[in-house]
Design a binder for these strands. Structure first.
Lengths: 239, 239
DNA sequence: TCTCCTATAAATCTCGAGAAAAAACCTTGA
DNA sequence: TCAAGGTTTTTTCTCGAGATTTATAGGAGA
């Protein structure tokens, strides 16, 4: 029960090179808002923070372009991708387009292994939900990881690597926004109940109900973010 | 009429850095099969061919990871992404999922500018089709460019940047496969007629017909590639 | 002949320094 | 006070060399 050991992320692949290490840490810092949207990412400053050479850090930034968390402009350096309500709406709807299709495929094709995996993922997520609420950032981090694992497990039986790839990118993007909605909770939600209903519908192989619950579930976060004050999206242009 | 001038691609952005230049040339070479699928991309060899330093070439390769044309394995270098029939089927179906949705949005939201743009794009494509068939690789190149422009113009009125972004990646991927189907034409196609029908349906704002024609149009290429001998997909593991 | 181990070769990864470009600053003039 | 022009500073981009890791080749032993 005591998980006091260093909370080394389980599913995070051990970095084999310095570039990968810097990439992983940078990605985490961007998603968590250490580097806010729109911020200029100066190589000369960041190379000290992440303890690598300039060329190495440039490569890490280039890798983050793949995730669309960083944008690069020739001869003008790197920048954290800006955010906006319009962007989050786009992310959400595109993600739903892909994720509901993948879920349909999973429900149709998923076998016993897939079922077992989502049972396990749901259990882990439920446990994390219980530990939540104490304003414990470590627990929130763990919950975020297991929430992602649950959603990815649901669509794991889809044969489409491309859908899963794009879904992964979009989910990562939406994490930046979900962080914002944690500050204020404009819409009261019983997230556990939503997950429970989704889980039940999936085990019952009820495609219509499952996709509909998933859609509602994801759109609810969109609504929550929409109610945030516009200041949250004031991505500074400078520095 | 005489286009003997160096066929500098019009819409290709002039590279501002050496990295971008190497990236563009590498991308072209990979799509055109100069570097076949699965090939190991050794920095020390390629830096001579593309006349840049080793670090610069590494950055160009990292950029190609964004397009999923190159895969990087830590401490084991870079490789051209492999191809397979399963992958192309996945690409095609995912692309249709996104592109039909974007087309629906375009048909609903597109204004006069959008209409004018697809009229122009269709005209340019038709002209390129006329010049085709002489086994002229230059004309084929031009046709490929205008075909892409036509398809992108159709969905240009979609407000979803993410769909357009993913569609761009998938289209790029499918170019590698389309090249294969050019060698042998197992299925006789009147591509111009298909484009014409698609164009007509779009101008008539007939969503159902337009998406259905587009689907048929794209699936036909999938069928053509499926009939190719399996040797085309024998992506060598070595070298 | 096959396997395992070692030695060699090759490739990748990493860093710091110099050249080129962009941004910031400061002076001058109206 | 403001604008314009030029100078300084900062930042990005680029390259080559050294260190580490991986792949290859050769040989000993069974």
């Amino acid at each position: 029960m005591n998980e006091a050991v260093p909370p080394r992320t389980p599913e995070a692949v051990e970095p084999k090179t310095l570039v990968e290490g810097a990439y992983q840490r940078l990605r985490r810092d961007i998603i968590e808002g250490v580097h806010p949207p729109g911020e200029k990412l100066r190589v000369e400053h960041l190379k000290d923070r992440y303890e690598v050479g300039a060329g190495t850090l440039r490569e890490a930034l280039l890798l983050l372009v793949t995730d669309a968390l960083v944008v690069a402009q020739g001869q003008r350096g790197f920048r954290v991708s800006p955010i906006s309500i319009e962007d989050f709406e786009d992310i959400t709807r595109t993600r739903l387009l892909l994720e509901t299709e993948a879920l349909r495929q999973s429900l149709q094709l998923g076998g016993e292994d897939w079922e077992a995996a989502i049972v396990a993922a749901f259990h882990r997520l439920s446990r994390a939900e219980q530990k939540l609420g104490d304003n414990d950032s470590l627990a929130a981090e763990e919950w975020e990881r297991r929430n992602r694992a649950f959603h990815e497990a649901l669509i794991a039986a889809s044969p489409s690597r491309w859908i899963r790839h794009f879904q992964h990118i979009l989910y990562q993007q939406s994490e930046r926004y979900r962080r914002l909605s944690l500050f204020s909770h404009p819409i009261p939600r019983d997230i556990h109940a939503e997950h429970q209903a989704l889980f039940n519908a999936c085990l019952a192989r009820d495609t219509t109900r499952a996709t509909s619950i998933l859609t509602e579930h994801v759109l609810r976060t969109l609504d929550a973010v929409k109610l945030l004050p516009a200041e949250f999206f004031a991505g500074k242009r400078k520095s």
